[in-house]
Structures are given as structure tokens and as C-alpha cells.
């Protein structure tokens, strides 16, 4: 790990070469708003564009997404210029017109001084949800869980995550990692009794032999046993009672 010094908002900070500017900033207590970045993902998609910052390097100044801009020698970062604020505000206003019902986006809008979007709001079932199509759910499913049950479908305005053929996915293990990772709480997952419902599929849950609480889908246990060789008996108890 090569340590280098970069400047953020005029202050020298120490960072690791090739780590993201967002990470370096946060490690040094500098806040940058961001929606779709996730520490467990190898390549940050940079799709929500909320984490824009201004960087100067080799005499060139431009706006970049801090979640995937690599820390390199001689880098100067500004997180709060007029341009950053203006463009971020525009991005958030567009997100608000897409997902006016998402509390996270409403809050971000207020923080950026937006009362309501001046643009038309997407209507219809396909559009009127909380999804900002950032693809984090699909990345988590592929890279962290390793099942690739969902992917981004279609393109442009219609782009959204979904299962193959829009049918319950064979590959899905019901782990819910996608729902936990989603920055706008757009993925519906319900646990009722011993049944979990997600992506149009029902999963039977394993109950903890101590507290009796259903805590993990059977399909997920099968997957972990299969891929890690862990003993099935391990899942007899929930994490609280192991």
C-alpha cells in the first residue's frame, strides 16, 4: 500500500494510492453525499452521480465521481465548489422527478435546497417506484452473494433490475442482500411467519432452535453449505444464539 498525500478542500490528507477519493475523504472526516457506492463492490459503477467532486490534476480541472476516481499523486480535490453544488443539485432534481416517493431522495433534495422538481414526474407502475436504477443490487448479487439472480434489464429510461424472463429466478436464494444494499429501499422483501417473499418468489425460512425465530431462507443455507462446505448443523441456531 503506497501512501501519498493529496489535497482535499485545501487540506493535506494522507491516502492510499488507487483508493477512491470518496473513501479517502470519508476516512478523513470529509462528508460527500453518495447513493450507489458500496465498499464491498470492486468496481463502483458511478451511476447515481451524486458524489461528484471537482478534481485538478496535471493542470486539468473537471468534475468526476469521487466513488471511483483513483487517488494519485498531485491530486487536488474540492467537494464544495459552486459548480459541484449546481450540478449535484441538478442531478438530485432529476432523481426526484424519477422517484418522488423515495424518502432518501426527498431528504437529499431538501439538503440541496430543492422544494419540488420542475420536471415531469414519471408515472405508471414501471416508473413510479423508488428505484434509481443504480445497479447496486445486481452488483451485490453477483459479487458479494455470487448467485447473479438479477441483472439490469432494458435500457434508457426503462432500465431497471429484474429476474430473467421476469419470472421467479431459479438462482435466487432469498438472502435479501439486494434489498439491504439498495440505497433507496426500492426492493420489496417481506417476511411473514416462515415465509419470505422477494422478487416474486417465496422462500421457506429456517427457524432458530433456541428462540424459534425464522431467520434465514433454506435456499440460502443450501447455497452456503454447497459453496463453503460449512456444516448444515451450524444453521440450527441464529447468530444471536450461536
Amino acid at each position: 500500500m503506497e501512501k501519498i498525500t493529496i489535497k482535499i478542500n485545501g487540506k493535506d490528507i494522507e491516502a492510499v494510492k488507487d483508493q477512491s477519493v470518496l473513501e479517502a475523504a470519508r476516512e478523513n472526516g470529509i462528508a460527500i453525499p453518495a447513493l450507489c457506492s458500496h465498499p464491498e463492490i470492486e468496481t463502483q459503477a458511478g451511476s447515481c452521480r451524486v458524489c461528484l467532486v471537482e478534481v485538478s490534476q496535471n493542470g486539468r480541472t473537471r468534475l468526476v465521481t469521487s466513488c471511483n476516481y483513483p487517488v494519485r499523486k498531485g491530486l487536488e480535490v474540492r467537494t464544495d465548489t459552486d459548480l459541484v453544488r449546481r450540478i449535484r443539485k441538478g442531478v438530485v432534481e432529476l432523481l426526484l422527478s424519477r422517484t418522488p416517493d423515495a424518502p432518501v431522495i426527498q431528504k437529499l433534495a431538501r439538503e440541496n435546497g430543492i422544494e419540488e422538481s420542475r420536471f415531469f414526474v414519471d408515472e405508471g407502475e414501471h416508473y413510479r417506484n423508488r428505484c434509481i436504477a443504480c445497479s447496486l443490487c445486481t452488483q451485490v448479487c453477483e459479487e458479494v452473494v455470487g448467485v447473479s439472480a438479477i441483472s439490469m434489464l432494458d435500457r434508457g429510461r426503462d432500465k431497471s433490475p429484474g429476474t430473467p424472463y421476469l419470472k421467479p429466478s431459479q438462482a435466487c436464494i432469498g438472502c435479501g442482500a439486494c434489498a439491504y444494499a439498495c440505497p433507496t429501499e426500492a426492493i420489496s422483501m417481506t417476511d411473514e411467519g416462515e415465509t419470505r417473499k422477494i422478487w416474486g418468489k417465496e422462500f421457506k425460512m429456517v427457524t432458530c432452535s433456541v428462540c424459534g425465530k425464522p431467520y434465514i431462507p433454506e435456499a440460502q443455507v443450501d447455497w452456503i453449505v454447497k459453496t463453503t462446505g460449512k456444516d448444515r448443523a451450524f444453521f440450527d441456531k441464529c447468530p444471536d444464539h450461536r
Binding site: 453477483e142 439472480a149 438479477i150 441483472s151 439490469m152 434489464l153 432494458d154 430473467p164 424472463y165 438462482a171
Partner: peptide
């Protein structure tokens, strides 16, 4: 056809979700 995408998934060992993603893009 759906059968075709399923078959590719088996033979080429690519997740169906990715094939369907490409098919819709």
C-alpha cells in the same frame, strides 16, 4: 426464445440473468 437463453446458460456457463440482460438491451 427463452429455451435458447436457458441452453446458452448451461453450455456457456453464464448466469441466465446476464443473458436476459443482454437480450433486453
Amino acid at each position: 426464445p427463452e429455451q435458447g437463453m436457458k441452453r446458452i446458460s448451461e453450455v456457456l456457463d453464464i448466469p441466465e440473468s446476464k443473458i436476459y440482460g443482454v437480450g433486453t438491451f
